[in-house]
Design a protein around this nucleic acid. Structure first.
Lengths: 244, 244
DNA sequence: CGAGCGATTGATCATAATCAAGCGATGTGG
DNA sequence: CCACATCGCTTGATTATGATCAATCGCTCG
């Protein structure tokens, strides 16, 4: 098993892939690998997205900065996540993608994607599924920011990230990495860093999470999900590959 | 000019369409027209999206209801807007689409869409552009809910809706319909209905909007945009069709 | 050793939620 | 035709959630 099979693992939550399809994916990940330092941008607002970015290792985020300096993180990108293949249609990016840690990513040309999806319809469908889940996650963030309390927001986000990391094989024995700083979690949840700190402490106090440094452990996922009113349906993990 | 050419008008903000392409679009809108009463659902969470919904007239919204009754509107759908063609891949909808007014929509089969996009690459590209703009709008809502004050949120939303309606020909002399009730605007902006009411009054007091019943007038769009820190880039109206 | 970053804590403040009541227009059934 | 109910909007009073301000601490790194 390669260390860079995160995308493959994720897509297999939707549908079985043949060896040929996995091979085609693998080849895509090979071309033009780039290393980005923490706090650098993978793609900057205003520039044209020439390539599709696939995160091979490390964490990144989509974010937008307002004129007065306020910043909102609109998505976290973990290994196996990729920017939208169609984004290169647009004249200019309306937001940036920044590295939260050191990141390695593959810059894949749109043509390469189209070649592969043209040859492998099932892969094409799996990538469309991936895109739909990404959209559903974005909607769920809207729900969180609009309706949920600070406590629920943070708990919900941790549930989501934990399951997403699980899907790409980055959870071991209820533990995973959680690289974002509290300030970054604050920018994602629309809270202040102080409030994120207090909320994390409350989650710890209730025994729902163990968090030391960048390592998060969730001793009882069901309990955390229940505290967060987290419903995993929007991640659409119940398709061809698993059920039916 | 047909009264149902909203989608065509919108797509032409991205690229010129040939008569054949417009004709193909027109035919799509014809099949299987459905009428939905206000407060009814076009598509319900948990069900399978068999068809693509294209709004021909009236307003709808995507929304999600939490277990305890809280509701978040995650998107407004106005004439010319459509649900994601790929959504039928998913086993079940993770949210509902509800009518805010009486709505007429066209239920288009995925096969019909694929037939048309297969035959007209430019149309295919325009629809992908439409999808990207929808995703950008969703991100911008995340920014609003996470970072903007009540005043900015409401002002920003009004700017967005005004421009979107403008793009489909539903603005006349700085005036458009605004069917959502204040309670619905509250569910979209993550505010209480009381706060929306007070914010609208403040916008009126400052002369930024005129709002009576369901009619909204924006005497000075630039002024409102500036008050909202509204940057229209994310709507990506500057492509092939207009510039270059 | 000093600087800087991230996490933490306490005190105070502000924004917006909640609660409660009333108004005006619309619509409906007796 | 009128009495009454409902809905959407409006207003005032109070409360609460989370922001802001400010300081400290521990750790890492140069």
């Amino acid at each position: 098993v390669s260390t860079n099979d995160h995308l493959t693992r994720k897509l297999e939550h939707f549908t079985q892939l043949s060896p040929a399809e996995k091979d085609a994916l693998e080849k895509l990940m090979g071309e033009r690998v780039r290393r980005i330092a923490a706090r650098e941008d993978l793609l900057r607002e205003g520039s044209k997205a020439e390539y599709v970015c696939l995160i091979l290792s490390g964490w990144a985020c989509r974010y937008r900065t307002l004129e007065d300096g306020r910043r909102q993180i609109t998505a976290f990108l973990v290994p196996g996540d990729l920017s939208d293949p169609d984004e290169s249609i647009l004249r200019a990016m309306d937001h940036s993608i920044g590295a939260l840690t050191r990141v390695t990513c593959a810059d894949i040309s749109r043509e390469a994607i189209e070649r592969v999806t043209g040859a492998h319809p099932r892969l094409s469908k799996a990538l469309r599924w991936e895109r739909l889940v990404t959209a559903a996650i974005q909607r769920e963030w809207t729900v969180s920011l609009g309706q949920r309390s600070a406590f629920e927001r943070v708990a919900h986000l941790l549930c989501e990230l934990f399951l997403r990391l699980h899907a790409v094989g980055l959870v071991e024995a209820n533990r995973c990495e959680l690289p974002p700083t509290q300030a970054e979690l604050a920018e994602a949840t629309g809270l202040s860093a102080v409030q994120v700190n207090r909320t994390l402490q409350e989650l710890r106090r209730q025994g729902l999470i163990l968090l030391r440094g960048r390592e998060l452990a969730i001793p009882n996922l069901k309990a955390l999900q229940s505290a967060a009113q987290f419903n995993p349906n929007y991640l659409h993990r119940d398709h061809e590959g698993l059920a039916a």
